[in-house]
Structure formats: C-alpha cells, structure tokens
C-alpha cells in the first residue's frame, strides 16, 4: 500500500529555562495507507509528541513530515489548521467534547469546516448509526453522556470529514474495559473500511488491535512489529468464525507481549 505519512529525520526539541530536551531524534518512518499503526513506549518516550508532529498539530524542530502528499513541517498555524480540517481526524484521551454544544453541534461544527450542511448532516447520521448514537442522544449535551457515549461521539467528530488519517491519542485511557472494548471495536471496524489510523497507547489490549506496532524509546523507534490487520486472518481473509477470531487475537497478543518484552517494556 502506498505511504500516507512519511517522515525524514524528524526531530523535536523543547527548551525550558535554557535546558533543551530532545524528545524526538531523527525519525524516519512511514505509515501505509489503510494501516492501523500503534505507537507504544514508556512514559516520556515522545509518543504523543510524535503523534502531534505527524498530524500537523505541532511543528518539528528539524526534519520533514509529509502527509497525503503534502509536506507540512514548515507551514504556518493557519495553513496547518486548513490542512488538518481536510486530512486529519482526532480523538483525544480527555475526549474534549465542547460542553457548550450539543452532540450534533459538536460534530457539525467540525464537519461544516469542509462540507455543505446537507452532506455533513447525512454523513453525521451515517456515523452516528455506526457507533450507536440515537437521535435523542444527538440532542444531549456532553455533561449528560456516559464515558462510552462521549467517546463514541468523539469518534464521530474525528471521522466526520473523512480524513486521510485518523489520529487517536490514548482513546481508551479514561474508559472502563467495557467502553474501551466498544471504542476499539469501532476503530477496528472503521479501519476495516480502509481508514488509516495512527494510535498512541500504552494499553496492550488496545495495541493488539493495530496492524503494526512501533516501539518508541528515548525519541527513537527501537522496534517495529507487523501484526497484520486484526480483522483478517493469515491469508488475508475475514475471520469466518468468532472462535477463530478469538484465537487469532490471542496469538496476536502473545506476539505483542514477546515483542514488547524484547523492547524492554
């Protein structure tokens, strides 16, 4: 599959009171279109920094980032904003739904940046149906939602513009296991339709849903594990029975644990 994201010597340094902290160091990486790339690593390894550099939320100190054929490393804030609205969707750990807007308005506000009202409304309904948000729920405000509902709304918001890449930063970090499973199932389902996903997580169960795991430590990629798409078997077909899916998941989990152990997790 062609690369949707490419970086060349990507570096990010923070300065604080004269002390420099090199968070990302000369990263060369590629994310294929349609892949579900998971970025793992210990705390302070630069996972979120990498995510936001890849998504144009933050500018690298050195190096280049190319997303969907556009080099974004040296763009202005407004240019990056316009880029993000067209090519990026986000889901944050803290969800960050705008509590002054209803569920529908939270999604429409992002959708209307690029699309016409009727089209955005139709797309929103399609996504709401996908994630199980009823019309009644769509009129609620974020304070009235459960954690799972809020996460699903955040997912819809991130996908409303059919982004080139969906970026998720610890999407299950504040969810219980039931809601986490729901969100991960949805991410997997969305990925199965061809949506490229880049996810940062420190959760093994979440990481197991990805097709490729990158291990980040001290600002560099120490290892890479190719798990293949979670919804496909070794031959590239969809699992034809739940039992086989569970067995495949267990095998992926074992593979992942071994990989992480090698990485020093």
């Amino acid at each position: 599959m062609p690369a949707i994201i490419t970086t060349e010597k990507l570096s990010k340094t923070f300065s604080n009171a004269g002390v420099q902290q090199h968070v990302l160091k000369n990263l060369d990486l590629t994310v294929e279109e349609g892949s579900f790339t998971v970025i793992m690593g210990p705390s302070g390894s630069g996972k979120s920094t990498l995510l936001y550099a890849l998504s144009g939320m933050d500018r690298p100190t050195l190096g280049t980032v190319t997303v969907a054929g556009e080099e974004i490393s040296s763009r202005s804030e407004d240019a990056l904003a316009r880029f993000r609205r067209a090519h990026c969707g986000f889901m944050f750990q803290q969800i960050y739904l705008l509590d002054a807007l209803s569920v529908m308005d939270n999604v429409m506000a992002v959708g209307l940046l690029t699309g016409r009202r009727a089209q955005v409304r139709a797309r929103a309904q399609e996504l709401f149906n996908l994630v199980g948000i009823t019309p009644a729920d769509q009129e609620k405000f974020p304070s009235m939602l459960s954690g799972g509902e809020a996460a699903r709304v955040a997912l819809v918001r991130g996908l409303i513009n059919s982004p080139s890449v969906f970026f998720a930063d610890e999407p299950t970090g504040q969810l219980n296991s039931e809601f986490s499973r729901v969100v991960l199932d949805l991410l997997q389902e969305v990925n199965a339709t061809g949506q490229t996903i880049v996810m940062v997580t420190h959760d093994l169960r979440s990481a197991g849903r990805g097709s490729r795991v990158l291990y980040l430590r001290d600002g560099t990629i120490r290892g890479e594990l190719d798990l293949g798409p979670a919804h496909l078997d070794a031959t590239g077909h969809t699992h034809d029975a739940p039992g086989r899916a569970d067995a495949a998941a267990a095998a992926r989990h074992t593979q992942l644990v071994a990989f992480l152990a090698d990485m020093g997790w």
Binding site: R82, L98, A100, A109, L113, T114, R157, N161
Partner: peptide
C-alpha cells in the same frame, strides 16, 4: 483556552 485549542486542532484558523 481548551475549547479554542480543540477548535484549532480540528482545523479552525485564527481568522475563523
């Protein structure tokens, strides 16, 4: 600030 940041994240420009 947070609302503005989230809005910027999703593509609202300074002008918007």
């Amino acid at each position: 600030r947070r609302t503005l940041g989230v809005s910027k994240a999703f593509g609202f420009t300074q002008r918007d």
